[in-house]
């Protein structure tokens, strides 16, 4: 008998809140992106766990699409970081105040 799904769900919740905590407290844009990846992975783990608990392949298909969306998001996000860095020579979110009133 394998590990019950509740443990996976608790672990995924812990991983998600660690990612959210990092996104809230860190200033480096790159590290903030990594924290978003942590949260996406927590969601993926939850989907796979529910897929196993309910015996439904749909959860794994959703994880497949989440991977694609994560790849696209990282590509565009890092392109934005590079474009910002070319202008401001800084990767800190605090320096992105060009729209400040």
């Amino acid at each position: 008998m394998s590990i019950p799904g509740e443990w996976y769900l608790i672990l995924a919740a812990a991983l998600f809140i660690l990612g959210a905590l990092g996104l809230l407290v860190r200033r480096n844009v790159l590290v903030m992106f990594m924290c978003i990846e942590l949260m996406l992975n927590a969601a993926n783990l939850t989907f796979v766990t529910y897929s196993r608990m309910l015996g439904d392949i749909g959860g794994q298909v959703v994880v497949f699409f989440v991977l694609v969306v994560a790849a696209a998001e990282v590509v565009v996000g890092l392109g934005i970081v590079v474009a910002i860095f070319r202008r401001r020579a800084s990767s800190s979110a605090d320096d992105l105040n060009a729209l400040k009133g």
Binding site: N41, N44, V48, S51, R52, Q60, F64, L67, A70, A71
Partner: peptide, 21 residues
Amino acid sequence: VAVLFIEQQASFLAAVQIIVY
């Protein structure tokens, strides 16, 4: 996370997790 995917019989996703992520 990939190891836990394998543990839950999602072996393809574990491989994709390593390759893509």
